[in-house]
Write a protein that binds this DNA or RNA. Structure first.
Lengths: 157, 157
DNA sequence: AAAGCGAAGGTCAGATATGGTCAGAAAAGG
DNA sequence: CCTTTTCTGACCATATCTGACCTTCGCTTT
């Protein structure tokens, strides 16, 4: 078992024991506890406590800084995705669209395959027109994502 | 929890308890209470009691000086924004326009996305003409901001 | 009045305390 | 071997906190 695995197990135990499925920890202290460099903690968080796997990380630097890890439910993620849809502005660039797609994937509302398909559609459609690419891209993205989320909801029932 | 967090919490509690959602305090006394330097209080005010977060600060120096912190409502901020619109002169530079946009964002009447869009429009439109850029910029800015505020009002109802 | 004084609050640069990132080394797995 | 995962360290970003120095205001003394 690697060090990363041990740290993962430790953190999961702490969360499990906690009242509200969320804990706050000090990166430096945790690193001290496991006798490793602080960035090792970031590695564990990045590889094992992703949104996709149901964990939410938030942190603050500076004096009194902390790292908070919270379990999120499927419903939490769906509502986060809904909020994210609202944040798609009137016009977006291709790279912004990619960022949104990555976020939706992380939130577990789009599979990798669906991300690929949507990206292809965006490219094909915006290639057709001379002007207003960013606007078309934004509205298409919104529609497609909402469509997939709609489908997912129906399949649940 | 950092000292700044504690002071923030204390101040919010005081405001909450107050009659009219406003309190007056002495910087020196508050610093004494938390055993810190007075400028720490300024730090807390600057980082946590901004307009954007719904607080209004006013103060006076000299003997009998004070710091007053008041909660401002959404309506208050809207009317402040309206007054701000009137302060846009007949001509403004790009950086002045940016300052206005930042203020409107602080007042919560423009989202970050809307600020970006408006800035883009200003740049695109003023690039079209040789003279009178500052004048066009001022009138466009006024119109666009008023438009957004109008939309916001309608969506409320 | 004008000048001087003490009592507020304001500003800002820099020290301190955290956490973040990334390239590359080391280890593990196939 | 080659690839993937783990691990480290140098360098970066940001929040907090302090202290020296500045500004403003009311009051008192000339």
């Amino acid at each position: 078992m690697s060090l990363a695995d041990l740290i993962e197990k430790y953190i999961k135990q702490q969360i499990h024991r906690s009242e509200n499925q969320a804990i706050a920890l000090s990166r430096a202290e945790l690193a001290e506890l496991f006798s490793c460099v602080p960035s090792q903690i970031n590695y564990v968080l990045a590889t094992r406590f992703t949104l996709e796997r149901g964990y939410l990380i938030e942190s603050r630097r500076g004096g009194g800084g902390y790292i908070r890890i919270a379990r999120v439910t499927k419903a939490d993620r769906l509502s986060m995705a809904e909020r994210l849809v609202l944040e798609i502005g009137g016009q977006i660039s291709e790279s912004e669209a990619d960022q949104f797609l990555a976020s939706f994937h992380e939130l577990g509302v789009l599979t990798r395959q669906q991300v690929r398909v949507i990206r292809a559609i965006l490219q094909r459609e915006t290639a057709q027109i001379a002007q207003g690419k960013a606007t078309l891209r934004a509205s298409l993205l919104r529609s497609l994502v909402m469509l997939v989320m709609q489908c997912a909801k129906e399949n649940e029932v």
